[in-house]
Design a protein around this nucleic acid. Structure first.
Length: 638
DNA sequence: GCTTCGGCGTATCATGAGAT
DNA sequence: ATCTCATGATACGCCGAAGC
């Protein structure tokens, strides 16, 4: 028995190779037989060792990788004009050789007549290979931009599949072996004749959930050739910002968030792609029934005066229901509707800030809460649990079904929500709050969220012209510059004295700036506390607990390092300076929580009116202080 | 008395910078 | 490398005012 090599993910269609056992080869005088396609020659090298960019190059998307892609494409283009054949290779002993050579014509004819060779035009075959390579390159670059936790494993997988396009890869690198074994690709190919990555979705932040293990955990970096303990710096891909607009990208391919919001407010339909009706679905599915009911009933909850007359009948099919959530339909049927762009899942140039928005995919619990969830009495959502409500129907289905089927139902609903263009900005009903089904727009009417999947943009760009210049432009020293200005003729002593003074000041300023750079952010932000009032006027409670430290504080506290006690001191100053009467319990709680929020502190500091002049003084005097406090700054660092 | 609405404050989150 | 902190947008809950 021999070995049947796979052709890419196609099992058994690559080549056949059979090595005879010692005993058998003695008897038949055949040592080895090998049958394979010569198409591999299109991409072969002189020494027959396939050259392709390393996995690391693909991982980093280096120039070498791009060159390799271009080289392959070129080779296939050339090859599509040439004929290639198949080769049947026998390694035989002299006895068989002499017999076979006499009979080779008959053997060749028999082989041909057995119809064992499938002839495909080169153009078709290499066109297919080219598309395959292009698809894998697209997947690679797309995944590079998405930058998932398993980017290394995925890019290794793509590289492996690419290598296998026209070659049988003898032993894949460790990280690819691991990936293949997690996905059971060889087993699936052996069982079904072909393996698929049908769960690969390049629109998601986690493109292949089955493989959602962190690269670090799988040892991918090590396998890629990175030094142990030195993981690659996985930077966010920087989208190319394309200037100008087009019909396809009305506000450019990479607009800023602000311009996206503006455009969505003004011309939502230019920004959201036209609705393409979904292909006919199985409307007998429970999920379809629930979704149709959901659509009809949620639409019913809009105030009638906001709807344009005549109001169409409720949707009958899933296709109709989904269309009711298209931007065009909402725009046409509701007198006033504010489209609010969601940006979850969009590729953004700037780091994502703030709490991530719920994607359409994750809004299922808002619209389809589980029957056992407690919702505050009086909530609008409870109406849907009434006799004919869609939530009642959903609960009935879930009750009837096995657990797995129920999960499939919920997943289908999730999927449907993910595939509509807009949804109301609903707020989930909870045990403590009623939530909202529709939210009011700015003027009148309603607000809806737009699904980023349907935007005519590639992602969000930034106004930011890159990081601020860190290193100041190198400048000539004042004295040298002054000399140049004067030219070589004047060189008076009085001038040069001034120059020297200026130069000294400039040098000192540079030193101070250097010292300042070393200071911690905390130290820079610490402000000089207000001057102490005369002891006699002060409330004894205001005194710090350890009175022996007082004199030192009085002279030096402004630039003292923020020792463990210093932070509360700032707060204390703020609290006391506002001179409020003793607070009731509720307010006290608030103060306590502000304490935990350092961000609020700065705000609070400004409120304290007494502190302001001091603060200005402090900032004004900062330069002087910096110059003075050379050594003390060394101790700063918290 | 109940519901709805809007304002406000807090919690949450991912990220980068700086500190350790 | 890892930890800590600041940042800033958003979700969410609470609460008082307004409306019925």
């Amino acid at each position: 028995m021999g070995k049947a090599h796979s052709a890419n993910t196609l099992s058994r269609y690559g080549a056949m190779q059979a090595e005879m056992g010692l005993e058998r080869s003695r008897r038949v005088h055949i040592v080895f037989r090998n049958t394979y396609l010569l198409q591999y020659e299109a991409h072969r090298t002189a020494d027959n060792v396939p050259v392709s960019a390393t996995d690391k190059a693909a991982f980093e998307m280096t120039e070498a990788y791009h060159k390799d892609c271009a080289r392959r494409k070129e080779a296939y283009t050339e090859a599509s004009k040439l004929p290639f054949g198949a080769r049947d290779e026998w390694r035989v002993g002299p006895e068989t050789y002499s017999a076979a050579i006499k009979d080779c014509n008959r053997l060749a004819r028999a082989c041909f007549e057995s119809n064992g060779i499938l002839f495909i035009p080169s153009e078709l075959w290499f066109g297919f290979l080219m598309r395959r390579a292009a698809a894998l390159e697209f997947a690679q670059s797309r995944t590079y931009k998405i930058n998932p936790v398993n980017y290394g494993a995925l890019s290794g997988l793509y590289a492996h599949l690419k290598r296998s396009i026209d070659n049988t890869v003898p032993v894949p690198p460790p990280h690819v072996r691991l990936t293949l074994s997690i996905l059971c690709l060889p087993e699936i190919a052996a069982r079904f004749g072909m393996a698929w990555l049908h769960n690969l979705n390049l629109d998601l932040t986690s493109p292949l959930d089955e493989l959602a293990f962190e690269d670090k955990l799988l040892g991918v970096y090590k396998s890629l050739g990175y030094q142990v303990g030195k993981n690659p710096n996985r930077k966010k891909a920087v989208p190319k910002r394309v200037a100008g607009t087009s019909k396809e990208y009305p506000i450019g391919e990479w607009p800023t968030l602000a311009s996206l919001r503006r455009e969505m407010g003004q011309r939502p339909l230019s920004l959201i792609k036209p609705w393409v009706p979904v292909s006919p679905c199985d409307n007998s599915m429970p999920a379809a029934e629930v979704f149709v009911l959901f659509t009809a009933q949620v639409w019913d909850m809009i105030q009638p005066e906001l709807l344009l007359q005549p109001v169409p009948p409720p949707p009958a099919t899933l296709e109709e229901a989904m269309e009711r959530w298209s931007a065009a339909y909402l725009f046409q049927r509701i007198t006033e509707v504010d489209f609010i762009p969601l940006i979850s899942g969009l590729q953004t140039e700037e780091a994502a800030r703030g709490r991530p928005q719920l994607s359409f995919l994750n809004r299922r619990p808002i619209f389809f809460p589980m029957p056992e969830e407690n919702i505050r009495p009086g909530s609008r959502w409870l109406q849907f649990r009434d006799r004919h409500g869609y939530l009642r129907r959903l609960a009935e289905f879930l009750k009837q079904m096995a657990k797995e089927d129920g999960e499939i139902l919920l997943e289908s609903l999730t999927d449907m929500l993910d595939n509509v263009q807009c949804l109301p900005c609903s707020v989930k009903g909870t045990a403590s709050s009623g939530g909202k089904v529709w939210t009011a727009g700015k003027k009148e009417g309603v607000e809806v969220y737009a699904n980023p999947r349907f935007y005519r943009i590639r992602g969000l760009g930034s106004d930011n012209q890159g990081p601020a210049q860190k290193r100041p432009v190198a400048q000539a020293r004042p004295s040298a510059f002054a000399k140049k200005l004067r030219g070589s003729d004047s060189d008076s002593d009085s001038d040069s004295e001034e120059d020297e003074a200026a130069a000294a000041k400039w040098l000192e300023a540079r030193k101070a700036a250097a010292r300042n750079r070393k200071r911690s952010g905390k130290a820079k932000n610490s402000r000089k506390p207000p001057a102490r009032k005369p002891r006699a006027n002060r409330d004894p409670e205001d005194l710090p607990p350890v009175s022996t430290e007082e004199p030192e504080e009085e002279t030096d506290s402004g630039r003292q390092p923020p020792a463990p006690g210093a932070k509360p001191l700032t707060r204390k100053t703020k609290a006391k300076s506002s001179r409020e009467p003793p607070k009731p319990a509720a307010q006290a709680r608030r103060v306590e929580s502000t304490r935990r929020q350092p961000a609020r502190r700065a705000k609070g500091g400004k409120v304290a009116s007494e502190a302001e002049p001091e603060e200005e003084e402090y900032i004004d005097g900062l330069d002087d202080m910096l110059e003075e406090s050379g050594d003390e700054d060394e101790s700063v660092g918290g």
